[in-house]
Design a protein around this nucleic acid. Structure first.
Lengths: 176, 176
DNA sequence: GGCTGTAATTAACCGAGGTTCATTTGTCGA
DNA sequence: TCGACAAATGAACCTCGGTTAATTACAGCC
């Protein structure tokens, strides 16, 4: 458990969520960071044509927030919704950042958080750029096997970047 | 010009580069951050099958480093090479991070750097996940028109995530 | 058990990008 | 100006994912 997570848990506000409950929607102003105590969240974009693409699944233990909203108070670039019953803890990031200007300990906690975030995005970028949908599915199974079993096919497909039909074909190909 | 850039420029070591010169290779241990004074760098992966995929182009004014190397001293996950004559300034990140533990001003400079990095990766993730190759090409033309003109088609294609032939077809489609 | 609605799979067809190879264009130095 | 090499484009064929629609599997409920 990182210091940043401790900090969020101890100072944040706990929220119970049910499947379909949104923490925020694309376009909202919400500069909270959220820690997932239980359940799974998904972060997703809605494109102009209505298609949904999933940025990431956030199982228990994850930390999430819209970076552009956290950093610049811009509207959130994606939506955050629960896919299972669970509990999350929310904490306003702006206050954190303010406090960090004075508090060296807090500042270093923030640095750790941002570093981990950057690493996660770097890996995701690699997967999207260098792996085929089929390979991305395999990576997902290896790295987040539990998530893969708790999330429906449509969402898995939207995470990998294909349609549910294509995912179905991929699974058949892999089996044989 | 951000404080972080100033800091790198003033404390770093300047390096002249020619096209093809590598700052580091995939797998190297190199925890330097680099500021691009002039020229263009490209950051790229080599996949198992030998294919090259380009993470990002770094024109003058950019800051770059392998996040996993900076944060954990892991081997770099990509290679960094110059595509034009130019000059870059390198600075060991680990020393920065050490110093930031004591220096609140430095810590906040780091926070700004990591925030900007996170935002950049978030946008790139969106582009890769939600845009077609053709749309990604359009976005590239709008956002980095100068880069598009200074880089060859093969590299542009590798950035968009298609073959040079496919990029050629895309250009033809767009023109008509 | 039978009904109903949703999730998951399957099928058939289409189109975009990959692959391979050929051709054209462009650049640079002799 | 010419020749040589690399870059860019073009053509032919193939594969895989998208699209649309139908079918199957499954869970909750009467």
């Amino acid at each position: 458990m990182s210091k940043f997570q401790d900090l969020v848990i101890q100072n944040g506000r706990e929220i119970a969520v049910r499947p379909g409950d949104h923490l925020f929607n694309q376009g909202d102003s919400d500069s909270n960071v959220y820690f997932v105590k239980s359940g799974i969240l998904k972060a997703y974009y809605i494109r102009a044509d209505g298609k949904e693409h999933i940025k990431s699944f956030l199982p228990e233990g994850s930390i999430i927030g819209s970076m552009v909203a956290l950093v610049d108070d811009d509207p959130c670039s994606f939506s955050l919704v629960a896919v299972e019953d669970g509990a999350v803890v929310g904490l306003p990031f702006s206050r954190l950042k303010e406090a960090a200007r004075q508090d060296i300990g807090l500042a270093n906690v923030l640095i750790d958080f941002l570093s981990v975030y950057g690493k996660r995005k770097e890996r995701r970028e690699y997967e999207l750029l260098s792996l085929s949908p089929e390979e991305r599915y395999s990576v997902l199974l290896e790295g987040m096997h539990d998530v893969a079993e708790r999330v429906n096919q449509a969402d898995l497909a939207a995470y990998i970047g294909v349609t549910p039909q294509a995912l179905s074909r991929i699974k058949r190909r892999i089996k044989s």
